[in-house]
Design a binder for these strands. Structure first.
Length: 471
DNA sequence: AAAAAAT
């Protein structure tokens, strides 16, 4: 099982364990969602919050039968028309060129069609938006940030805060690609990024104030830079929270996010705030609705409509831990090698280390990423996987953010089948606890996940993979 | 209960 350079059409298998192992098969390396995704993701509506009104009448989107399952809520009185083309958004020609030439987009995806007019038009209301993994979510806020920058003003005008350093780096890559012709400057604010600090030879580091127009980083570092007066808030126009559910959850980065928001509001009350995430639970939804400025917009998707159609999901009952290892080795990795790359998600750092050791001992070539590794190692491992130099990646939730079972699950399976590419997910269940969780997930999303009848039977996996379109 | 992220 030598790791060979993956050809570009290869799918990916990833496996995870949530107490449980979850295995996912995909058709390509981890990549950002495309805007003009061909996938027929369904975005449906819901919601009726307090005094907010559903604003359908002025939205072209609702007259498009194909898209009638999206609903928006606006507490403002600004009518928005969905953008069917990027031209309608009055973007700078340099940005339009970036979209077409660099990003290879043709037209806005559904979520982009609805959210971009809300983001880009005065009075620049705050927005709480839920969008699929792979539906072009990143491009929404990336384009939002780029479009609102005054190119002549060399000062921070847009921030994006993300729950992991990896995500910050990835978002910056997308932004730079999209903004290639714009001349807009950007940088990462993450702890170990090689910034432009000056090492004095002693312990302390002198860091100049940030002049980049867009800053993407992790909450702790952004907060730190602000409190040390290295990151000016005076010209800030737009703040984005990526994976906003996690950024606002009690258990997540709530303190940092709220602290940053408060500081911004203090200096700059009119700054627009965008909350983007694939999932929002009720608590976070309510909290977000509370901290936005009075009038704001919301976009939500029914949870029944959330799962990705291009990703087939299965469950595999494994009688014991050894069976899990056997399935990973003989099925997931063997088929994964033929089909593309594999991510194996595990619940703890320890399981990651243990599984890595077990697989290496029996001769498999795998890499592992988890938060205890040095940042340079993490960067290297992610890059190698993205470049197709490695075939199998074991990961903790570092690469699949979320904060409760259902949402972790969503984020994890979202790693497969990006862009509507084909993928398969195998949930490796061992014991009653795992099965209970699986049932809860099925109930939550209102779907039943197909079972691979016998973990020992190769043919059962062949059938599953064929059905997923991977063989 | 675990993981991520600031010092």
């Amino acid at each position: 099982m030598a790791a060979t350079a993956a050809d570009s059409a290869t799918p990916t298998i990833s496996a995870a364990d949530m107490t449980t192992h979850l295995a996912v098969l995909r058709h390509d390396a981890v990549e950002e969602p495309s805007s003009s995704s061909k996938s027929e993701e369904k975005i449906a509506s819901e919601i009726e919050i307090g005094n907010l009104t559903i604003n359908e009448s002025n939205n072209k989107f609702f007259h498009d039968p194909e898209s009638s399952n999206i609903k928006t809520i606006s507490s403002g009185d600004t009518p928005y028309a969905s953008a069917f083309t990027f031209e309608e958004l009055n973007l700078l020609p340099e940005l339009l060129k970036g979209l077409y030439v660099e990003m290879k987009y043709e037209k806005p995806s559904k979520i982009q069609a609805i959210s971009l007019p809300m983001i880009l038009n005065p009075p620049y209301l705050d927005l709480i938006a839920q969008a699929h993994n792979g539906s072009g979510k990143t491009a929404c806020f990336t384009l939002g940030m780029l479009s609102r920058i005054d190119p002549k003003l060399k000062a921070p005008q847009a921030f994006c805060i993300c729950p992991t350093r990896e995500l910050a780096i990835q978002n910056l890559e997308v932004l730079r690609k999209m903004g290639k012709y714009s001349g807009i400057t950007s940088e990462c604010a993450i702890r170990s990024a090689f910034g432009n600090e000056i090492h004095t030879g002693k312990k302390q580091t002198i860091r100049p104030p940030i002049t980049s127009q867009i800053v993407i980083g992790t909450p702790g570092t952004i907060r730190h830079r602000i409190s040390f007066n290295k990151l000016s808030l005076s010209y800030l126009k737009i703040l984005v929270l990526d994976e906003a559910d996690h950024m606002l959850a009690e258990d997540g980065f709530k303190d940092d996010s709220v602290n940053i928001m408060n500081k911004i509001r203090c200096v700059n009350p009119q700054c627009q705030v965008l909350f983007f995430s694939a999932t929002f639970n009720e608590t976070v939804k309510e909290f977000a609705a509370k901290i936005v400025k009075g009038n704001h917009n919301q976009l939500f998707v029914k949870k029944e409509e959330l799962s990705l159609q291009s990703v087939k999901q299965y469950k595999v009952n494994c009688p014991d831990e050894l069976a899990k290892v056997m399935v990973i080795k003989d099925r997931i990795l063997e088929f994964g090698e033929r089909v593309g790359q594999t991510i194996i998600f595990v619940r703890t750092r320890n399981s990651a280390i243990t599984l890595h050791r077990t697989l290496v001992e029996i001769g498999y070539d795998v890499t592992t990423i988890q938060g205890a590794l040095k940042q340079e190692d993490r960067d290297k491992i992610v890059k190698e996987f993205k470049d197709g130099l490695t075939q199998v990646l074991i990961s903790t939730d570092l690469l699949a953010r979320g904060f409760d079972q259902d949402q972790v699950y969503m984020h994890r399976i979202g790693r497969a089948g990006r862009f509507g590419r084909k993928g398969a997910v195998f949930n490796l269940l061992c014991g009653d606890a795992d099965e209970t969780i699986m049932t809860k997930i099925e109930n939550h999303f209102g779907t039943e996940i197909a079972e691979v009848p016998d973990w020992r039977n190769e043919e059962d996996f062949v059938v599953a993979l064929r059905s997923a379109g991977l063989l």
